[in-house]
Design a protein around this nucleic acid. Structure first.
Length: 309
DNA sequence: AAACCCACCTGATCGC
DNA sequence: TGCGATCAGGTGGGTT
């Protein structure tokens, strides 16, 4: 469920707490939380115990904690602990020995040289999220791999994820060129994380509404002007949502302290079917799209809006 | 090769 | 009260 703003809230909360801390204990309660990890629970625990965390980094909806190399004698592989929250994952900062969270899957105990003991709990109702230890590989463009760390590396399994639109190394020109080659609906391109990352169902609908583009518009039919407008609106909605702490409909999405964000109050179309479009008053419609839903204004976002002929 | 579908899960809600 | 259908913020593997 979390999209870029929610994941960034988590990264920003984790960073000051875990940077420089050493992992002193790992408990896997449910192996389904390791679907992105190649080994089993015991191997995961062993791979992390004793390692120190160097940073908290994010690209799109993926988070990772780069780790100090293992002690002398072991293979000097550069590795990171990856986290993906899936639809319902949470990373929570708790006091050592804190009572188990609902849906707690993994607990990581750390020792920070300044702040002392703390624990990071991974809780996830639907189990689509997961943690993994993965090796870091160089980025193909030599730019930093994500937000939060200057090193030009990404976990191997994140290498296929595109940069997100808030990344300084994101290329607007390459994005517009890529749209011209896509034989599919613009909303599919926004949701597929290999052209632009970080956008999910909520912010795709919000950005398309703001740019007055129908979600089913063929990507390559968008004029350069419409594509530029869309990208600007994607950035605007992601930044505004981030400033408001993300979108929380219930207790599912929370920051590392368990607190909800406020952006749900600022939604213009998502989940507002039947209510007036804030721009023109026409009732918002909800339509089936890719086994989920799209929300749009039938007047502001007509099929041909923004289409070049 | 790009585009598309669907499985992977738990839980809340709604209509009957 | 129960019970089935539907819905929920994502991703990746398998199939066309």
């Amino acid at each position: 469920m979390p999209e870029l703003p929610e994941v960034e809230v988590v990264r920003a909360g984790l960073a000051p707490a875990v940077t420089g801390a050493q992992i002193v204990g790992v408990t896997v309660h449910d192996e389904r939380a390791l679907t992105r990890h190649t080994g089993g629970a015991a191997e995961f625990e062993a791979a992390l115990t004793g390692r120190s965390v160097r940073a908290a980094v994010r690209r799109g909806k993926f988070l990772w904690l780069p780790l100090e190399p293992t002690a002398a004698g072991a293979a000097p592989a550069r590795e990171a602990l990856i986290g993906h929250l899936g639809m319902s994952g949470q990373l929570l900062l708790r006091a050592p020995g804190a009572a188990p969270e609902r849906h707690e899957r993994v607990r990581i105990d750390l020792h920070h040289p300044v702040h002392g003991e703390l624990c990071v709990v991974f809780a996830d109702q639907r189990t689509f999220g997961s943690l993994a230890v993965d090796r870091l590989v160089p980025t193909s463009d030599d730019a930093p791999g994500g937000y939060g760390w200057g090193e030009a590396s990404v976990p191997a399994q994140v290498a296929h994820i595109a940069r997100d639109p808030l990344d300084p190394a994101f290329s607007d020109r390459a994005f517009r060129a890529a749209l011209g080659r896509k034989d599919t609906a613009i909303k599919r391109v926004l949701l597929d994380q290999t052209t632009v990352s970080g956008v999910g169902n909520i912010y795709a609908d919000e950005a398309l509404w703001a740019a007055r583009i129908h979600p089913g518009t063929p990507a390559r039919a968008l004029s350069a002007r419409a594509a530029g407008r869309l990208l600007a609106e994607v950035r605007a909605v992601l930044e505004k949502a981030l400033a408001e702490g993300g979108t929380s409909f219930d207790e599912q999405y929370v920051n590392v302290n368990g607190e909800a964000g406020y952006f749900a109050h600022s939604l213009n179309v998502y989940g507002r079917q039947g209510r007036a479009c804030p721009r023109c008053g026409t009732p918002i419609v909800r339509e089936a799209f890719m086994n989920r839903s799209s929300h749009r204004c039938p007047r502001c976002q007509r099929v041909r809006a923004g289409v070049r002929r």
